[in-house]
Simulated assay, not measured.
Amino acid sequence: MNASDRTPADLLRSALTTDPARPLVTFYDDATGERVELSVATFANWVSKTANLLQGDLGAAPGDRLALLLPAHWQTAVWLLACSSVGVHVDIGGDPAGADLVVTGPGTLDAARACRGERLALALRPLGGRFPSPPDGFADYAVEVPGQGDRFAPYEPVDPDAPALTVGGTELTAARIVERARADAAGLGLSGPGTRLLSGRPYDSWDGLSAGLYAPLAAGASVVLCRHLDRLPAEELARRIESERVTGTADGTPGGTA
């Protein structure tokens, strides 16, 4: 990664220029059997489309606050990087009533209706599928995002020292996210391309966000992100670690070594 990178979006751009074909996020949902693997290039394309949706259709601007009510999921990772690209402040599990926008999964629609701004819902179905019918009061992400542009340019430069993330009551700037992610990478055994971290941590804490996205991105590594990992028998977990060429697992994850 480039030493001058100061935002998560900068880290993604550097990864795209270095090795766009390598895996970045491999996602499993052990409740549905879903497996999705996204290369750097594919992930970056989703981020660009989502950032264009956020900036263009939803009218978001740097400094706006977005309540993100989503679990650990590959689409959540896309939203985190899209917000970084625009300069939107992400509040993980934040109060929708105090947010400019809300992005929610199917299980938190009622809470999300408290937002007076734009509301977007994700069905979180395999392969990014849409809702059978859009929830009342929400735009369906799976309907809105495909037609967005594949290239993104922010209307305004993103300030690395502006608030970018609130999680667990702690507010972090974009630059601080990058600094902490780089520091975490070594402790998680991430030393560059070829290192793969398996994480079953939820995205409701810094530790979960770091292991499940930011630290692998900062290290030029990749993550095997698992939702509902507690449903996976130990022998199947061992097979996954082997088949996915995992080099380390986050603590708190069954079989963890980091």
Results as ranks from 00 to 15, higher is better:
Ala219Asp: 12
Leu229Tyr: 05
Val246Tyr: 06
Gly94Val: 05
Val224Asn: 00
Leu229Gly: 09
Leu53Ile: 08
Gly212Phe: 04
Val145Phe: 02
Leu213Ala: 14
Leu81Ile: 01
Gly147Phe: 11
Arg22His: 01
Pro106Ile: 10
Pro23Arg: 08
Ser14Ala: 15
Pro126Leu: 14
Ala72Trp: 08
Ala51Phe: 10
Trp79Gln: 11
Ala181His: 01
Gly63Cys: 03
Pro106Met: 10
Val78Thr: 14
Asp184Pro: 15
Ala67Ser: 15
Arg22Val: 08
Gly117Glu: 07
Gly208Lys: 07
Leu213Glu: 09
Asp161Gln: 10
Gly137Leu: 14
Gln148Ile: 03
Thr76Gly: 03
Gly137Glu: 10
Ala72Lys: 02
Arg231Gly: 06
Ala44Phe: 01
Gly256His: 06
Leu225Ile: 12
Gly56Asp: 15
Gly105Ser: 04
Asp95Gly: 04
Gln55Asn: 02
Leu127His: 11
Val86Met: 05
Ser222Asn: 06
Ala60Ser: 13
Glu37Phe: 02
Thr104Arg: 03
Asp207Thr: 14
His89Ser: 07
Glu244Thr: 12
Arg151Met: 11
His89Lys: 13
Gly220Cys: 13
Arg130Phe: 04
Leu232Gln: 06
Ile241Asn: 01
Asp10Tyr: 04
Val78Ala: 09
Leu237Gln: 12
Leu122Asp: 05
Pro126Met: 14
Glu34Ile: 13
Ala211Tyr: 11
Arg35Val: 10
Ala181Gln: 06
Asp184Tyr: 08
Val158Ser: 11
Phe152Glu: 08
Ala97Asp: 14
Leu109Gly: 01
Ala250Phe: 09
Gly252Asp: 10
Val224Gly: 01
Pro146Asp: 14
Asp91Met: 05
Leu24Asn: 00
Arg196Lys: 07
His228Gly: 05
Leu80Tyr: 00
Ala72Ile: 09
Asp64Lys: 02
Ser48Val: 06
Thr173Lys: 08
Ala3Glu: 14
Leu109Ala: 07
Leu190Pro: 05
Glu144Phe: 00
Trp74Gly: 07
Asp10Leu: 02
Pro134Ile: 03
Arg13Gly: 12
Ala218Ser: 13
Ser205Phe: 09
Ser39Gly: 11
Gly248Lys: 01
Thr108Ile: 00
